[in-house]
């Protein structure tokens, strides 16, 4: 995850409280989504950014996962994400995200 984004997530968690924060990812690959999810839950696995060793355990979802899809307006979802849903390997993404949440998420 981009170092600047790590810093933003960390700052938000301090400002609003980790239990009040949900991170929505838009990564195009399961592996990339998993890495980002790991970063905001268990800490930066690349040991490069501000979240190195910081276990925030945030709630984290990919924008194509059903939990997010069911929570937002259907028309807007179709307009903004419908095309990408057709393109992405959803099974791979959902599997990665579920694994990370099960292991590291403190608030899901």
């Amino acid at each position: 995850m981009d170092l600047e984004n790590q810093k933003r997530v960390k700052d938000f968690a301090e400002k609003y409280g980790a239990e009040n924060l949900v991170v929505i990812l838009g990564a195009a690959e399961g592996e990339a989504a998993g890495l980002a999810a790991e970063t905001v839950t268990a800490g930066d696995p690349t040991f490069a950014g501000p979240l190195t060793g910081v276990q925030l355990g945030l709630s984290v979802y990919h924008c194509c996962e059903p939990q997010f899809k069911e929570a937002v307006d259907e028309d807007i979802y179709e307009d903004q994400i419908g095309m990408m849903e057709m393109v992405l390997d959803l099974d791979e993404i959902i599997e990665e995200m579920t694994d990370i949440r099960d292991e590291f998420c403190k608030y899901c």
């Binding site: 195009a28 690959e29 990339a32 419908g82 057709m86 393109v87």
Partner: peptide, 25 residues
């Protein structure tokens, strides 16, 4: 972990083609 960038782009263009009715899914 950044995937196959051209292929992802082609899939997106194709998916838009499906939405427009230019091609079958």
């Amino acid at each position: 972990g950044a995937g196959d960038v051209p292929t992802s782009n082609y899939k997106m263009i194709g998916a838009l083609g499906v939405k427009r009715g230019d091609i079958e899914r």
